[in-house]
Simulated scan of single mutants.
Amino acid sequence: MSRFVHEVPMRWSDMDAYRHVNNSAYLAYLEQARVAMFFDRHTGFEGGTIIARHEIDYLRPVVYHPEPLRVEAWIERIRGAGFTVRYEVKDGGVIAARALTLCVTYDFANDRPRRLTDEERDVLRSFGDDGSP
């Protein structure tokens, strides 16, 4: 098992008045990687997933350039009705940010969290972190 890697293009409009990528753009970068990780490649999460929490540590500023950022993602913890996704956002091989997202599987028809299925657990386990990209 190894980290999931997704290349995320920056947009010129991601920069703010201080001439670096605005902190709010990182949520979109994480979302793009998470969607590619689960929904673009697996159908097991169609039952519903919501975001309960985000945490982001900004380690260095990033200035727009045409090369994409590298987002490495892995599953840190699996619980009964949720899981934690960890990320490292890299700019030219240097970690620019570290983040986590707490995801909760959700039953929208009954408006409440639902337990992870065996299929979902198998998918999540495939994204463990062995420390190498």
Rank of each mutant, 00 (worst) to 15 (best):
Met1Gly: 11
Met1His: 01
Ser2Leu: 03
Ser2Met: 07
Glu7Arg: 05
Glu7Cys: 04
Val8Arg: 01
Val8Tyr: 09
Met10Phe: 07
Asp14Met: 11
Asp14Phe: 14
Asp16Pro: 12
Tyr18Pro: 06
Arg19Asn: 13
Arg19Lys: 09
Asn22Glu: 12
Asn22Ser: 15
Ala25Lys: 04
Tyr29Asp: 00
Arg34Leu: 03
Arg34Thr: 01
Val35Asp: 00
Met37Ile: 06
Gly47Lys: 05
Ala52Glu: 12
Arg53Ile: 04
Arg53Lys: 14
His54Asp: 01
Glu55Met: 13
Asp57His: 12
Asp57Arg: 13
Pro61Cys: 00
Val62Asp: 02
Val62Glu: 03
Pro66Asn: 06
Glu67Thr: 14
Arg77Ile: 02
Arg79Ile: 15
Val85Ile: 15
Lys90Gln: 10
Asp91His: 06
Val94Tyr: 01
Ile95Cys: 10
Ala96Met: 08
Ala96Cys: 08
Ala97Gln: 02
Ala97Lys: 01
Leu100Gln: 11
Cys103Arg: 05
Cys103His: 07
Val104Cys: 14
Val104Thr: 14
Tyr106Phe: 15
Tyr106Leu: 03
Tyr106Cys: 05
Asp107Thr: 09
Asp107Pro: 02
Phe108Trp: 09
Arg114Lys: 14
Arg114Asp: 06
Arg114Gly: 09
Thr117Cys: 03
Asp118His: 11
Glu119Trp: 04
Arg121Lys: 14
Val123Ile: 15
Leu124Thr: 08
Ser126Met: 10
Phe127Arg: 05
Phe127Ile: 07
Gly128Tyr: 00
Gly128Ser: 12
Gly128Leu: 07
Gly131Arg: 02
